[in-house]
Simulated assay, not measured.
Amino acid sequence: MPVDEPHRVVCLLDDVLTARGMTLTALADQVGVSVVNLSILKNNRAKAVRFSTLTAICDALGCTVGDLFQVVPPQ
């Protein structure tokens, strides 16, 4: 993949939060990550995420990493 090509990983955090009736602020408090950092992830602007953060988010939301992300087909 060329360096300038955007990634195709899409974060579904907003959908999972809605399904759980949880706010981003509540998740941030529970996980110990700033709202700003979670917002960057939620809005697909993150370039990386730590496994420890993913684990904490999944534990807080009762979901799997596969529930949080999907890879979209190339355009």
Rank of each mutant, 00 (worst) to 15 (best):
L13F: 05
P74G: 12
F51N: 13
T18Q: 08
F69M: 11
M22S: 08
A19H: 04
E5R: 14
D14T: 15
R20D: 00
A46E: 15
G32F: 03
V10R: 10
L17H: 10
V33F: 03
Q70V: 15
T64R: 09
S52Q: 07
M22Q: 06
V35N: 01
L27K: 00
H7Y: 15
P74W: 08
D15S: 12
V16D: 05
L68W: 01
V65P: 08
K47G: 11
A19W: 04
S34D: 05
P74S: 12
V3D: 11
L13Q: 03
D15T: 07
V10D: 14
P73A: 10
V36F: 06
V71H: 09
L27T: 00
A46Y: 14
L13N: 03
L13D: 04
N44I: 09
A56V: 04
V71K: 08
E5V: 11
A19F: 03
A48L: 13
Q30H: 02
A28G: 04
A26M: 08
I40N: 15
R50P: 03
V33W: 00
L38Q: 02
V72I: 14
I40M: 09
T64S: 05
D14P: 12
V49D: 08
R8N: 14
T18H: 10
N44M: 10
V16L: 06
S34V: 02
L24K: 06
V72R: 15
K47R: 15
L68I: 07
M22D: 02
D15H: 13
L17V: 12
T18S: 14
G21V: 12
R8C: 13
A46G: 13
L38T: 01
D29S: 04
D59V: 04
I57T: 01
E5H: 07
N44F: 12
R20G: 00
A19N: 07
A56R: 03
G62D: 02
V16E: 03
T18Y: 13
L54P: 00
P2T: 05
P73Q: 09
L41V: 10
V10Q: 14
V31P: 00
S39W: 13
V9F: 12
E5I: 11
V31K: 01
L61S: 01
T18G: 12
V16G: 04
I40Q: 14
D59E: 07
V71R: 12
V33T: 13
V35I: 05
C58V: 00
A56S: 08
V49R: 04
G32L: 04
F69W: 13
F69Y: 07
V35C: 01
N43R: 13
F51D: 04
